[in-house]
Design a protein around this nucleic acid. Structure first.
Length: 943
RNA sequence: GCGCCUGUGGCGAAAUUGGUAGACGCGCCAGACUUAGGAUCUGGUGUUUUGCGACGUGUAGGUUCGAGUCCUAUCAGGCGCACCA
């Protein structure tokens, strides 16, 4: 019988379930290896052929490592909270928990068909109370810690309270929202509420009135990485800036450690670079400027301290509190009008429209070094959230300042020898400084003339520091993460409010479970959906959730109405897999010590600035409090490329129901329409299927070429709306999971994006059928023979072992698949039937095509799984050749080949070549400069 | 604008890291077995030339006995950040 993949795959998938083949337990005898995929959000559309790419790749690696004797953890779960299920709930009233579970079931069914070695007994779902208990727990820990900049780690907030009570804030160097100066006396006279509000300034998880990305259509705020081009990542709705009180995580406290950590992990350069960009470290100087005829002083941040003599105006961000203080009465009306206008513009509008706008405040600042008076302006090209929200403008050496100065006719004062600023600014950090105003301002002691820019920056820094005019400062672009979402389908906060002050639910009473609501929409008074919950108050006596109607603000208090964002549950899930059913801790010390962190993490590169930053931050925090043994969660990261869809088009002649074939369409006025790729084969449309596809096409007419309707095509993202989704189930049914696995790997380099194209899949399928025929004849009799393998067979086999071992280690799976085919071709030519050779082949192939290998393995008489076989050792002896062919070149031009004994020395080879009749023809009496012999390859004679 | 990556047959792609291109698969051509094949097997397949040969890794230079690989410039495509001072 032929290779019956459907039957074989069903059989082995069942067997693996029954035997719990892929269950893992901590085993100190064996070395661990932790493989992890970014867990999926179970969307309603199910899996398409792009999803399994990473799972297959990691599955191969996991199986490979297991064969090499490692104890491999390869778990799977679901990122189950998210917007689509909630949007669906709003539309249909269906509870998101139900939709989500249905989607999970569908995913599981599809995943099972591909034959992964996941340990499903460790499955987690982020919406499961047993899981989110630990998300809430981590949040409480963050609430109760602050970040000590000197110690470079976080510490309990109680220690900060002690310091405040004894010494005030003077000695505190901690990550904070704003620099506060509080004496011990002030602190001690504060009431409870004031103290709590003050502590918010330092907590890692803190409540803050902040500018947020508000998406009115979604009715919620979004994190920076959830906003793309000024619209929401999900849905593409407009996003506006709005000031709101929100929970935040002080991610910025960890900016330097997040940056430093990148040097210790094995990630691709491009992802590291993206993270470095996102963190955006910049080293510069903070300088204090006094305001003329006023007590007010303000600080600016600059990386170009050397340009202090070129400052001809100052600019404040419109949102800066200084604007109100510095606006003179004469200018107030103009400034107010400007602020109004700015406020109305969305982020997106500000991004598109880069016309120079601004208004003068009426105040003048004093240059701290020269004493010169400088006008202070307001303009929205200065961002409130970066640096101090105020800048010193140097139009000669900054293009934005230059545009502003040109527009408002402000002086442009060049400071670098020979630079031309008549047309544009000179932004480069190079050249020799000039124009230091030593004469104009006799009091000025700083002279930068003749220094390079680099030297001048250093000199200015030193001068500013020594004269206490400011300080050296490092700034980061990385902002704190906004952690509140005005949504239903997310983790509830373990927070209740007493007298308007947030308090955490005691850890031992977690989880605080998500309450039921009647509606998933915001309330009429504009509260988030949890405002509809009837049972949503905290009873501090019985430590439980109770009816809202019982709130008395004595012992029963209102609970937080916001929920946590998507990244909350996905930030530490890898730890939970180590010990998923633990009720006492996120992860037991034993499990954490054994599994440590993820050795190989696979997922899409699109998470570079979201999940992969939050997750590192979250884990560093857990590391600081001793809940995780490793500072970095993911040691090696591989980003699989996206599988794009190949869409097909039909061309409808305008205002008709007639469709014209691709190469004839130029004669008509046509509208291209996406057509379901499943009714198109090799770009030829199945016309009957098309008529049946949609009612409006039932009586469609066609203009054919060669009796066929040829469709157009394009490479696009695989999505429902483009009708280009290919379901893996269909491939599995037609070719089998093993073929799908081999083919997805064969398609090209793992990290590259590539379009899905079934055109080559037959090659992989043919290979497996051929393999089957090595073992069985037409009547299913095993036809392998015992005995010694021949030299050629062993050579071919060991070439494969070497190639497979090397390539799998480098995730070069496409070349590994090629190596299998080459070896099978060679063994076929050799008519190999040798049991030991073929058996070893099966072991090496097992990670790629586990079902067929199990079946053959069993037929060969083994009563254990091929998963528990041993990865074969490579033996160089078999690859040795008796003779080696050398290409003989003269002056780099290949001429002919000669064969030598494998152990011939260079001297032998040289002598033979020079004595050779052929060679003499090329040398022809000319003198030989040298003879280059590349081992086993080439002899090049230079004449 | 800044940073990163990629560019090789009709197509997906290889190339032991500087060693004399195009492995493997698809497609195509020819042949065999077939009533037939979109099944299977065998052989061929970068361009050009009848042939020896010549030319070929986006383009133009350079280093080298030798360059797809290194250097310089340039073009094209992709990704990330983007009024970050």
């Amino acid at each position: 019988m032929a290779y019956n993949f459907n039957e074989i795959e069903k059989k082995w998938q069942q067997r693996w379930r029954d035997d719990r083949t892929y269950r893992v337990t901590e085993n100190s005898e064996k070395e661990k290896f932790y493989v992890l995929n970014m867990f999926p959000y179970p969307s309603g559309a199910g899996l398409h052929v792009g999803h399994p790419l990473g799972y297959i790749a990691s599955d191969i690696y996991a199986r490979f490592k297991r064969l090499q004797g490692y104890n491999v953890l390869n778990p799977m779960g679901y990122d189950a909270y998210g917007l689509p299920a909630e949007q669906y709930a709003i539309q249909t009233g269906q509870h998101p928990a139900i939709t989500t579970q249905q989607n999970i079931n569908r995913y599981r069914e599809q995943l099972d068909k591909i034959g992964f070695c996941f340990d499903w007994e460790r499955e987690i779902k982020t919406c499961d109370p047993e899981y989110y208990q630990w998300t809430q727990w981590a949040f409480i820990k963050m609430f109760n810690h602050y970040y000590d900049n000197k110690a470079k780690c976080c510490k309990p907030i109680s220690e900060l309270v002690d310091i405040l009570a004894k010494e005030g804030s003077a000695g505190i160097d901690a990550a904070c929202t704003e620099e506060l100066e509080i004496t011990a006396e002030q602190w001690n006279t504060m009431n409870e509420k004031e103290q709590q509000e003050t502590l918010m300034n330092w907590r890692i998880a803190f409540l803050n009135e902040t500018m947020v990305n508000w998406c009115p259509m979604l009715g919620t705020v979004l994190a920076n990485d959830e906003v793309v081009d000024g619209v929401s990542e999900r849905g593409g709705y407009p996003v506006v800036q709005k000031k709101m009180k929100q929970w935040c995580l002080r991610v910025s406290a960890y900016a330097q450690r997040l940056l430093d950590g990148l040097d210790r992990i094995d990630w691709s350069d491009s992802i590291k670079e993206t993270q470095r960009n996102w963190i955006g470290r910049s080293e510069g100087t903070e300088m204090k400027f006094h305001v003329k005829e006023s007590d007010v002083e303000f600080t600016i941040f600059t990386t170009r301290a050397d340009t202090i003599f070129g400052v001809t105006f100052m600019v404040l961000a419109p949102e800066s509190e200084l604007v109100q203080q510095l606006t003179t009465d004469a200018q107030r009306a103009d400034v107010e009008a400007y602020l109004d206008r700015t406020k109305k513009r969305t982020e997106r509008e500000r991004m598109i429209d880069r016309n120079v706008t601004g208004v003068f405040t009426g105040s003048y600042a004093i240059n701290p070094i020269t004493g010169e008076e400088i006008p202070v302006w307001v303009s929205d090209y200065v961002l409130a959230g970066y640096g101090t929200g105020a800048i010193m403008a140097v139009p000669a050496h900054d293009s934005r300042d230059y545009a502003f100065a040109k527009h408002f006719g402000i002086e442009i004062r060049p400071l670098i020898e020979g630079c031309d600023v008549s047309e544009e600014s000179f932004d480069a950090k190079e050249g020799i400084m000039t124009n230091s105003p030593t004469a104009a301002f006799a009091g000025c002691k700083l002279n930068l003339n003749g220094k390079t820019v680099k030297e001048a920056i250093a000199a200015t820094k030193q001068f500013v520091t020594e004269n206490k005019l400011g300080r050296v400062k490092v700034n980061y672009r990385l902002r704190d993460a906004i952690f509140s979402r005005q949504r239903y389908w997310g983790e509830p906060f373990p927070i209740y409010y007493k007298n308007g002050v947030p308090y955490t639910v005691p850890e031992e009473y977690l989880p605080v479970e998500l309450p039921e609501v009647e509606k998933f929409l915001p309330t009429e008074s504009g509260e988030p959906p949890l405002g509809h919950a009837k049972v949503w108050a905290w009873d501090t006596v019985n430590n439980c959730v109770t009816e809202k109607s019982k709130i008395d603000n004595e012992t029963i208090f209102p609970l937080e109405l916001n929920t946590m964002p998507g990244f909350a549950g996905s930030s530490a899930y890898y730890l939970r897999y180590m010990d998923p059913r633990n009720h006492q801790a996120l992860v037991s010390t034993e499990a954490d010590n054994y599994w440590q962190n993820v050795d190989l993490y696979l997922g899409g590169a699109e998470h570079a600035t979201g999940h992969l930053i939050y997750s590192r931050f979250w884990n560093m925090f857990l590391f600081d409090i001793g809940a995780s043994v490793k500072e970095e969660p993911f040691q090696k990261l591989v980003n699989q490329g996206m599988i794009q869809g190949r869409s097909n088009f039909v061309y409808r002649i305008k205002d008709t129901n007639t469709f014209v074939s691709l190469n004839l369409k130029k004669d008509y006025d046509v509208t291209p329409l996406h057509v379901d790729v499943n009714i198109v084969s090799n770009d030829i449309l199945d016309i009957d299927a098309f008529r049946a596809w949609r009612p409006e096409f039932a009586d469609a007419e066609f203009i054919l070429e060669n009796d066929k309707y040829i469709c157009g095509w394009a490479i696009e993202k695989m999505s429902k709306s483009m009708h280009n989704v290919v379901n893996p189930d269909i491939i599995v049914e037609k070719y089998g999971a093993d073929t799908l696995r081999m083919y997805e790997m064969f398609l090209g380099p793992l990290e590259q994006s590539k379009p899905w194209d079934t055109n080559g899949i037959d090659g992989c399928h043919r290979f497996l059928r051929k393999l089957w025929n090595f073992f069985f004849d037409k009547e299913d009799n095993l036809i392998v023979t015992d005995g010694e393998a021949t030299k050629e067979e062993l050579k071919s086999l060991h070439k494969l072992i070497k190639k497979a071992t090397d390539d799998i280690n480098q995730f070069s799976y496409n070349t590994t698949v090629s190596a299998f085919m080459i070896c099978a071709n060679e063994l076929g030519t050799l008519k190999c039937t040798n049991r030991s050779v073929l058996e070893t082949f099966i072991v090496v192939l097992a990670p790629f095509a586990p079902h067929i290998c199990e079946e053959i393995w069993e037929a060969l008489g083994h009563n254990t799984s091929v998963c528990d076989a041993q990865w074969p050792a490579f033996n160089e002896e078999y690859l040795k050749e008796d003779t080696i062919k050398y290409t003989i070149s003269f002056n780099g031009k290949a001429r002919f080949t000669l064969e030598f004994a494998a152990d011939a020395t260079n001297a032998d080879i040289e002598a033979t070549v020079l004595a050779d009749e052929n060679s003499k023809k090329y040398i022809d009496g000319k003198s030989i400069k040298k003879v280059i012999i590349v081992p086993k390859k080439i002899v090049n004679v230079v004449i």
